[in-house]
Write a protein that binds this DNA or RNA. Structure first.
Lengths: 136, 136
DNA sequence: AAAGGATTGCTATGATCAACTACAATCTCT
DNA sequence: AGAGATTGTAGTTGATCATAGCAATCCTTT
């Protein structure tokens, strides 16, 4: 069957993203995390006391959709919230959350390394700059 | 706010794919098409008489989910189905479907060209090969 | 030619995810 | 003090995708 689609960079981009996202999701699910969970943990770990809104902005997740995400993390004992002022609450990792983040980071970094290894050496260094140009 | 995520190629890949997919979806919606619709039209146009299952395999869409997709295209008068044998039906573009495909192709090709133009020339030629290595 | 297994198209259902609206409380700027 | 923006939350909706099951048909092997 003749299939011209893979020649479109945009199509290849979507297929590659879907395929790799599915792989990573499978790995993270063993830790009980989705990608958005892991991303949030990473950001909270790197920015103790950050607000839910700020995380949402960084990850392009609507404020409203942060609610169930953070609730799950809190219910799982991974994060805690402490009032900053009357309306904002700062997010922090619990000890448990820090451990889980360490696990997730190991999984993610191994996976990212494996991704790069798939790319022929001649193209490898160009991937990230090219993607950033598309995104930002 | 400190955000280490964009340094991960896999993360940049997902963000770039989401951003560009949203842009393309906006363009195609003016034609009343989603990406999967347009992809199906392209494949049917390139392979007259192809079956629904074959399209699904090429696009990684489950057999069951092809049903409403093709139904919409047929209801819109873009494709027709003719029995191949007792159980398979061959898909073809109607005149209307061919016209719509031409429109879609123009939109997509202009968009793909614009995508490539965003990528600095030094990286441009490396993008497609790198993506294919990740995907296949 | 008969039979077992695979394929096709379809129905129906459920899970998941993200977008949206709306709202009250609070902050910030002038 | 007041206007406008921001924060967190609830609730709803729509789109997408996976799954399981089914009847009809096909293909291959014996």
């Amino acid at each position: 069957m003749h299939d011209p689609l893979p020649l479109f960079p945009g199509y290849a981009l979507r297929r590659a993203a879907n395929a790799t996202a599915a792989e990573l999701a499978g790995l993270l699910s063993k830790l009980g995390l989705r990608q958005s969970d892991a991303s949030a943990l990473i950001l909270i770990g790197a920015n103790p006391g950050v607000t839910a809104s700020a995380i949402g902005r960084a990850l392009d997740i609507q404020r409203a959709n942060m609610v169930p995400l953070l609730k799950k993390l809190e219910d799982g004992g991974l994060i805690s919230r402490a009032p900053i002022d009357g309306k904002s609450r700062g997010l922090d990792l619990t000890t448990r959350g820090r451990d889980r983040l360490d696990d997730a980071r190991r999984v993610i970094e191994a996976f990212e390394a494996e991704l790069l290894a798939r790319v022929p050496a001649a193209h490898r260094a160009h991937l990230l700059p090219a993607l950033e140009a598309l995104w930002r």
